[in-house]
């Protein structure tokens, strides 16, 4: 097709629609951030399951293993991982409840959807801080 044959609206479409999937240029809206964090937190929890079950096992197997559990949990690295997993669980929990409501067509309009997404981020972070302070 010649340049001259292009309709004006086609030209406008060509200009106004930059098509790129550059992750550094895409500005994800808040619900999108909650969504990808839901996936990341779920993956993180899955990957760390052996650590969590191991700690659960140590805490219950015997009085001696309970002491070992306390020693393992006291190490800064494990503390950091557990704090991260606490956030992951809380975020996954809060975002999951939000999705259950969205599935029931509750709060699917743009405004409430954005507000609830912000609430998920805020509540899970706040609870993580509270639990972090309370436990350590």
């Amino acid at each position: 097709m010649f340049e001259g044959e292009l309709h004006m609206s086609q030209l406008a479409l060509k200009k106004e629609r930059p098509k790129h999937l550059d992750l550094t240029k895409i500005r994800l809206p808040v619900p999108g951030i909650v969504s990808i964090l839901h996936r990341i937190s779920g993956a993180g929890l899955f990957l760390m399951l052996p650590l969590l079950i191991h700690l659960f096992d140590l805490s219950l197997a015997s009085a001696e293993s309970f002491e070992r559990f306390k020693a393992v949990v006291a190490s800064p690295l494990v503390k950091l991982i557990l704090l991260g997993l606490t956030w992951a669980y809380l975020h996954h929990f809060c975002a999951g409840i939000r999705y259950l409501f969205l599935d029931l067509n509750k709060g699917i309009e743009l405004k409430p959807a954005r507000a609830s997404a912000r609430a998920v981020l805020a509540v899970s972070l706040t609870l993580t801080v509270i639990l972090g302070v309370a436990l350590w």
Partner: peptide
């Protein structure tokens, strides 16, 4: 395997 491990911890109680 994880599920079996966790259930074993619970069953031992």
């Amino acid at each position: 395997g994880y599920a079996g491990w966790a259930v074993q911890v619970l069953w031992r109680l």
